[in-house]
């Protein structure tokens, strides 16, 4: 299982094994990482699962789909590498990937 490193806004780090095919959002929820709220449970309708992919991993994580990109535009704290974590499915290539979480999802 690939290890994903989540870093919260306050610096707290979590290294977590996540099965391939599971979303970054679900991985965070299953491990009680507070920085992800996920009000809609992964349906790409709420924007409360926002994360920033570490710049070194952007290519591996891939680009946001059209719908996701529109949602992302509305997030005040977004960055160039922002994604909705429910839309990023873990793959073997993500071993060691670093994901930053915003201070707040609202």
């Amino acid at each position: 299982m690939p290890v994903i490193n989540y870093i919260e806004a306050n610096g707290t780090e979590y290294s977590i094994d996540i099965a391939e095919g599971v979303s970054l959002m679900q991985g965070a929820l299953d491990n009680m990482i507070d920085g992800i709220v996920a009000e809609c449970g992964g349906c790409c309708v709420c924007c409360t699962c926002h994360c920033m992919i570490d710049p070194a991993w952007v290519e591996v994580a891939g680009a946001a789909g059209a719908e996701e990109a529109e949602m992302l535009e509305m997030i005040d704290s977004r960055s160039e590498t922002s994604r909705l974590s429910c839309q990023v499915k873990v793959t073997a290539a993500m071993e060691g990937m670093v994901v930053h979480l915003p201070e707040s999802q609202y």
């Binding site: 309708v45 924007c47 719908e67 529109e70 949602m71 535009e73 509305m74 997030i75």
Partner: peptide, 9 residues
């Protein structure tokens, strides 16, 4: 309806 931006705003 298919308008995520409108929704967020």
């Amino acid at each position: 309806i298919n308008r995520p931006k409108d929704f967020m705003l």
